[in-house]
Design a protein around this nucleic acid. Structure first.
Lengths: 109, 109
DNA sequence: TAAATAGTCAAGCGTGTGTTTAACTAACAT
DNA sequence: ATGTTAGTTAAACACACGCTTGACTATTTA
């Protein structure tokens, strides 16, 4: 798991703090990969606004973009999410010693 | 698990988006319960500033405060955190069907 | 009652952010 | 070359935010 500074963790949450961006992230969380125009249509926003928010998400390390032809495809970086969540969700660490060595298991509630 | 609107989820992440508040939350995540003066000392901020941030965290539903004598004790609401994380961390749902019925298990990576 | 501890509240300052509009670039098709 | 699709960028505006200061309230102690 990547180690993030306090500011970097705050930047991840800041990227999720706007309802428009949060919608984008939740779309990506469901769809695994989407191109820009497709995302903008589903979120109901202009391409200009998408581009702006894409940059914020990208600067936070939450998404990666890849150009293929004239389209750009975007996917969520779930590792970056997990790295930020780690610090504020300590159940994970508290109970992780119960897990088997081959894979990390979490027990929630 | 409580159901949160998109705006309510964004408000939770907005509460975590400032490095000062994130520090407060991370202190509470480790210590389980702390009084205001104690938190302010550990975070290195004034009581006035703590009070301001406390309100933001409280409005987001992330913390609960309880007055005991002249002190006010604060604890993190881990359910509220989990409710917001749920939507952007779909591995949880995707793989939860692998878990045994008695407890929910998460497999990460 | 007076004083100390524990916190709240409102005003003010500077800075940052979300959104729109309009002009610009990149890749492909005809 | 021309046009079309796909996205970027900069300017401008309104609003929100983090922080400080200073005055205020509430609870306990002397």
């Amino acid at each position: 798991m990547a180690m993030l500074s306090l500011d970097a963790r705050a930047r991840v949450f800041a990227a999720l703090s706007d309802s428009t961006r949060l919608k984008l992230v939740e779309l990506l969380a469901e769809e695994d990969e989407l191109c820009g125009t497709h995302i903008a249509n589903r979120a109901g926003i202009s391409l200009a606004l998408l581009s702006h928010h894409w940059r914020v998400l990208s600067d936070a390390g939450l998404v990666v973009k890849e150009r293929r032809g004239q389209r750009q495809f975007c996917r969520l970086d779930r590792e970056a999410l997990a790295a930020a969540f780690e610090y504020v969700w300590p159940q994970r660490r508290l109970r992780s010693h119960l897990a088997q060595p081959s894979e990390t298991q979490l027990v929630l509630e």
